[in-house]
Design a protein around this nucleic acid. Structure first.
Lengths: 213, 213
DNA sequence: GCGTGTGAACTGGTTCACAGCG
DNA sequence: CGCTGTGAACCAGTTCACACGC
């Protein structure tokens, strides 16, 4: 029914959703497209186009009612029912993700952590249940975990991805610099390549300074 | 001299650069565009277009000489001389970044860590020198730090960004969900919004399942 | 007047297809 | 024959501009 949303639009709508909630906490009840845009660093007309994909929600001459907008976004983007996620690889980054507070408000529940080192599993203190890596397929399937945050060392990435696929995972956020894609048809991947972000930033600076000279 | 590279191209070239180095370690000396593409999950013609922005580097009927390609990339993207970076906010994520091993090969040196809690500064064990947040402008300027990884809590983000700007920072990787932009002309920002990544992934799943039904 | 909704124009990035060379 | 380099065709997403409603 919903016409297909561009991925860039989905990204921005996610941020708008977040903005709705945080702004509502301050007592505000409405916001114009240009004010939303200012908060998010994007132009107002883009905000309008994005929101407009969901239908006519704004009130002309008034802006968007935040409660209404939030509800529409939650519905259209599927934030209403909770999703289960797991962290694979409990090194520094993985452990940090395990305790990351900002997932909860989004109805994403971290239900398991995995690592191949039993030693490590025994030293980490967390309320989240932890398992050895070889149990990934079984635990993921049993608990109905749909999402994974993959934070293992590069060389362990393909194997870990394969185990997740075996468990029937549906989406992976890949913090590894390795390209994983066990089953493109069934599994969505989003890559976060930290080292490359730094490289890009560094290059952009370099190219800009270069140009200036 | 260099014609302006699209940002998407810079991102891919950074990954190609990384691939060059890691592949060379295995003893391989050449790679075709389609093999590079396969490793990176992008089509071969895109790889060729990207590399071609730097001039004619490939050998027709042969592929790309990895040593030569790596050298060209390092030169064109400015990876030759080191850049100094700092971590702002030493909670779990910040501490993890402080020890992240993958920055070194890219000539990015983490030269300082900052946090507003003196207590925290005293408990973290690291060879990197740590400073209280109010010293950001002075330390950044004195050490000639160009890049910052911003990992403070949301509400502290604008203030931290302002201090970095005051110190003359040139680029920030913003792990905060808050939009910062103290001085758009002078400071480049790259946003990594973890919670939103998860939201997007979740929505993509939702929309896909929806469509299937 | 303020602020949304939206078709139309534009932009830049991707994909195609093939010429050219070892 | 394999594989690069590249102009041309294509496409998605962004920007513009303005009509319409409160």
């Amino acid at each position: 029914m919903t016409s297909r949303l561009p991925e860039t639009t989905i990204e921005r709508l996610g941020k708008i959703y977040d903005l709705c909630r945080t702004t509502r906490l301050t007592g505000e009840v409405r916001l114009s497209s240009s004010r939303i845009g200012k908060s998010l660093g994007i132009p107002g007309h883009t905000v309008r186009k994005d929101i407009n994909f969901l239908g006519e929600i704004g009130n002309t001459g008034y802006g968007y009612d935040l409660e209404k907008l939030e509800k529409h976004l939650a519905e259209a983007l599927g934030f209403l029912n909770p999703r289960k996620a797991c962290i694979v690889g409990l090194g520094r980054l993985g452990s940090a993700l395990l305790e990351y507070r900002r997932f909860k408000p989004d109805n994403v529940l971290i239900e398991a952590g995995f690592d191949s080192s039993i030693n490590r599993l025994e030293t980490i203190v967390t309320p989240t249940p932890l398992f050895p890596a070889y149990e990934i397929p079984e635990v993921v399937r049993r608990k109905n975990i749909e999402l994974a945050l993959l934070a293992v060392p590069a060389k362990a990435a393909p194997e870990a991805a394969a185990l997740l696929a075996e468990g029937g995972i549906k989406g992976i956020i890949n913090f590894t610099p390795v390209t994983i894609n066990p089953d493109p048809e069934r599994i969505l991947i989003r890559n976060i390549n930290l080292a490359n972000e730094l490289r890009v930033l560094s290059s952009l600076l370099f190219l800009r300074d270069d140009e200036a000279s």
